[in-house]
């Protein structure tokens, strides 16, 4: 039998079990208590997609409609909407009594980049 450092090849391969054990421990620890959460980026993507694809007219989406579609709390969506409006990704319209939100030109560009790079990251098994 072929010998390497005084041990035969089979016993070296047998030692590979330690490496596999390390990998399994890493997998177990990192996967422990793992729950699938949506990332902040994914929530923003959902809101922008809703304002782009799911509106019947050009009046914009109400906060209630967005809460239902994006499935997040009022407090959280209010913060995100304020942020998106300040960054120019959404346009706010308060003329009809209730606030309505429409996607802007930069919002469309951001959404396109988000979708492209989401696919890119998914190739690596990751979410952006």
């Amino acid at each position: 039998m072929l010998k390497i450092h005084g041990q035969n090849l089979l016993s070296h391969l047998y030692n590979a079990k330690y490496l596999i054990t390390i990998i399994l421990i890493m997998r177990t620890i990192s996967g422990y208590n793992m729950v699938e959460y949506r990332t902040h980026m994914k929530i923003i993507g959902d809101i922008l997609t809703t304002t782009r694809d799911e509106l019947a007219d050009d009046d914009g989406a109400t906060v209630t409609f967005l809460i239902r579609k994006a499935n997040i709390s009022h407090v959280r969506i209010s913060r995100i909407l304020t942020n998106l409006v300040s960054q120019g990704l959404l346009e706010q319209d308060s003329s009809q009594g209730a606030c309505r939100y429409r996607i802007s030109h930069s919002g469309r560009e951001f959404l396109h980049a988000y979708q492209t790079f989401s696919k890119f990251a998914e190739n690596f098994g990751l979410a952006i």
């Binding site: 980026m41 980049a113 988000y114 890119f120 990251a121 990751l126 979410a127 952006i128």
Partner: peptide, 11 residues
């Protein structure tokens, strides 16, 4: 490029 466009920490 993806990071510059989206600000994603993963990218």
């Amino acid at each position: 490029i993806g990071f510059k466009n989206t600000g994603s920490p993963t990218l």
